[in-house]
C-alpha cells in the first residue's frame, strides 16, 4: 500500500505540473496541445545534464542543474509554439500536434547520435541511463521513497493559485484568454501576455517531463516519448475546469489509476483478480474518457482559447 501511495504521489506530481502548465497557456488564450512534446524535450534536457555531470557532484547541485537543463530546453521548445501560434496565427492544433511528433523524433535522433558517438558505434539505442544522478532526487522515509518533485509540485500549485488569482499579471493574462480585444482596449499587450503564458507552460511542462522519467525508472528510452502523458495532463486540466486547486485533486485521481498499473501485483486482492496487466495500462486512458464525457458539457474553458488574436476584430 505504501508503494501505491508513493507512485500515486509521484505520478500526481507529474500531472499537476504539466496540467498547470497547460492552465497558464490556455488562460492566456493559446491551446497547448504540444505539452507532450515539451515534456519529451524537457526530459531530454534534464537527462542529458544527469548523463554528463561528473559522478562526484553534490546532490543539491545535481538537482538544480538537472531542473535548469530541463527548463531551458522546454522553454526554448515552447517558443516554437508561441511564435507560430501568436505571431503567425497558425492553427494551434496543427502546430501542437507537430511539436508532439517532432519532440519524440528530435529526442530520438539526438540521443541515438550521442550514444553512437560515445560508444564508437556500438550503442545505437535511444536510452539514457541516470542511475546515480537519480539518487539525488530521492530521500527515504522508512521504506517510502520520497521524491523532491512532490514538493516542487505543491510549490507550483501554490504559485499558480497566487499568480493567477492574486496578481495583476495573472488577472491580465486571464483577460487575454477571455476577450483579448477588450484586454487590449485597456492597454494590455496581448502578444506579450500570450507569449508569457506559453513560455510558462514550457517551464512547467518540462518540469513534468523530467519528473516523469525520474518516477520509478532510472533509464529512459526516448523512442517511446512520454506515452500520452501530456494528453492525460490535458484531460486533468479539463476535469479540473482550468482551476489550480481542482487540477491538483483531479491529478490525484488520475495519478492513482496510473500508479495501479505499476504496483497492482503487490496488492493482494488486485493480483487475485487475475486481470491482465494491459488492462491496468489502459486504465488511465479509459478513466479519462469517462471523466471527460461527464465533465466537458459545462466546460469553463477560457472563451478565446484557440483563436488567434486579431487586433482589428472587436
Amino acid at each position: 500500500m505504501l508503494l501505491l501511495l508513493q507512485y500515486t504521489l509521484i505520478f500526481s506530481s507529474v500531472l499537476t505540473l504539466v496540467a498547470l502548465g497547460g492552465c497558464y497557456s490556455e488562460h492566456s488564450g493559446v491551446i497547448n496541445l504540444g505539452l507532450e512534446g515539451i515534456m519529451v524535450i524537457g526530459a531530454l534536457g534534464g537527462a542529458l545534464v544527469m548523463r554528463f555531470l561528473p559522478t562526484g557532484t553534490p546532490g543539491i547541485l545535481v538537482v538544480l542543474l538537472t531542473i535548469a537543463g530541463a527548463v531551458v530546453f522546454g522553454v526554448a521548445y515552447s517558443a516554437l509554439l508561441a511564435v507560430a501560434c501568436i505571431n503567425f496565427k497558425a492553427d494551434q492544433t496543427i502546430v501542437g500536434t507537430a511539436l508532439n511528433i517532432l519532440g519524440t523524433a528530435l529526442a530520438t535522433v539526438l540521443v541515438k547520435a550521442i550514444n553512437m558517438k560515445l560508444s564508437g558505434g556500438d550503442d545505437v539505442s535511444s536510452t539514457i541511463q541516470y542511475v546515480n544522478a537519480k539518487q539525488s532526487f530521492i530521500a527515504y522515509l522508512g521504506s517510502f521513497q520520497f521524491n523532491w518533485f512532490m514538493v516542487i509540485a505543491i510549490i507550483a500549485l501554490v504559485i499558480a493559485y497566487v499568480v493567477l488569482y492574486k496578481t495583476k499579471f495573472g488577472l491580465r493574462m486571464m483577460a487575454c484568454g477571455e476577450h483579448p480585444q477588450a484586454a487590449a482596449s485597456v492597454g494590455i499587450n496581448v502578444y506579450k501576455m500570450r507569449w508569457s503564458g506559453v513560455l510558462i507552460s514550457g517551464i512547467f511542462g518540462s518540469l513534468g517531463g523530467i519528473c516523469y522519467i525520474l518516477a520509478g525508472v532510472s533509464e529512459w528510452k526516448f523512442e517511446n516519448g512520454v506515452a500520452g502523458f501530456g494528453f492525460l495532463a490535458l484531460a486533468v486540466m479539463i476535469f479540473g475546469q482550468w482551476k489550480p486547486t481542482r487540477i491538483a485533486l483531479a491529478a490525484l485521481l488520475f495519478g492513482l489509476f496510473r500508479a495501479l498499473s505499476n504496483v497492482y501485483i503487490g496488492i493482494d486482492f488486485l493480483a487475485a483478480l487475475n486481470i491482465p496487466s494491459t488492462v491496468y495500462n489502459m486504465f488511465p486512458y479509459i478513466i479519462s474518457l469517462v471523466v471527460l464525457a461527464f465533465t466537458s458539457k459545462n466546460s469553463k474553458a477560457p472563451k478565446a482559447e484557440g483563436i488567434p488574436y486579431d487586433p482589428g476584430q472587436r
Partner: peptide
C-alpha cells in the same frame, strides 16, 4: 547507420507538419 539513425525522416516529416502551420501566412 554508423553515423545517424533512420528516425531522421520522422524528424523531417514532423518539421513539415510544423511548417504546414504557416501555410495560411
Amino acid at each position: 547507420k554508423s553515423l545517424y539513425s533512420s528516425q531522421i525522416s520522422d524528424l523531417i516529416s514532423a518539421l513539415i507538419i510544423y511548417l504546414c502551420g504557416f501555410v495560411g501566412f
